[in-house]
Each structure stands twice: as structure tokens, then as C-alpha cells.
């Protein structure tokens, strides 16, 4: 088998381990301590923020405008409305500021 195929298979196994790993470890505990549960509840906001913040910081005016409009849209609409509003502003703004 080629090296490329081995890389793909090993990468797939490594990825699957991350996907079941947290569950396999946590499920060994009978009761979840309130502090652990508070930590787990914080996971979505904590992780997703790390996918936005550095990208926003190294972006430009067009991207900032898009993120601001996305945030404003969140006050009224759902996820799809937010996404479409942000994307529309991004495409529009890039026509002017590149």
C-alpha cells in the first residue's frame, strides 16, 4: 500500500479517537461533579470562539463588517439569517475594499 494511503488511514483512526475519546473517559465516572459539568457546558462557546477570534483579528474591514452584521442579525434572526446576512455583507464589502 502506498504511503499516502497509510497517512489517510492513520489520520482517520487518530481523528476517530478524538471523537470517541472524551466520551470514553467521561463515561467512566458515575457522577459528574458540578464543576466538571459547568466546564462541559462551556465547551461549545469556548471552542467555537477560538475558531473566530484569531481569524477576525488578522482580517480586514470587509470581514469585520461581515462579523458585525452577523452579530446584529443574531438579535433578531436564526442561524441561517445570521449566516446569509454576514455572507452578503462580506461579498459586497470585498467588491469595494478587497
Amino acid at each position: 500500500m502506498s504511503t499516502t494511503l497509510w497517512i489517510i488511514i492513520a489520520g482517520a483512526i487518530a481523528t476517530y479517537l478524538t471523537r470517541i475519546g472524551g466520551h470514553l473517559v467521561i463515561s467512566r465516572f458515575e457522577n459528574i461533579h458540578p464543576r466538571v459539568e459547568a466546564g462541559l457546558n462551556a465547551v461549545p462557546a469556548a471552542v467555537l470562539t477560538t475558531l473566530v477570534a484569531p481569524a477576525a483579528l488578522s482580517a480586514g474591514p470587509a470581514e469585520w463588517a461581515a462579523l458585525i452584521v452577523t452579530a446584529l442579525a443574531s438579535l433578531r434572526g436564526g442561524l441561517m439569517a445570521m449566516f446569509l446576512a454576514g455572507t452578503a455583507v462580506l461579498i459586497l464589502a470585498r467588491q469595494f475594499v478587497g
Partner: peptide, 14 residues
């Protein structure tokens, strides 16, 4: 690949 996907450990626990 493992490092980039490591955040899944947290998701998986949740």
C-alpha cells in the same frame, strides 16, 4: 491531524 481535531475530545465528552 490529531492535534487539529483534538477539540473533538471536548465535544465527545459533552
Amino acid at each position: 491531524i490529531f492535534a487539529v481535531n483534538f477539540r473533538h475530545v471536548l465535544y465527545s465528552a459533552g
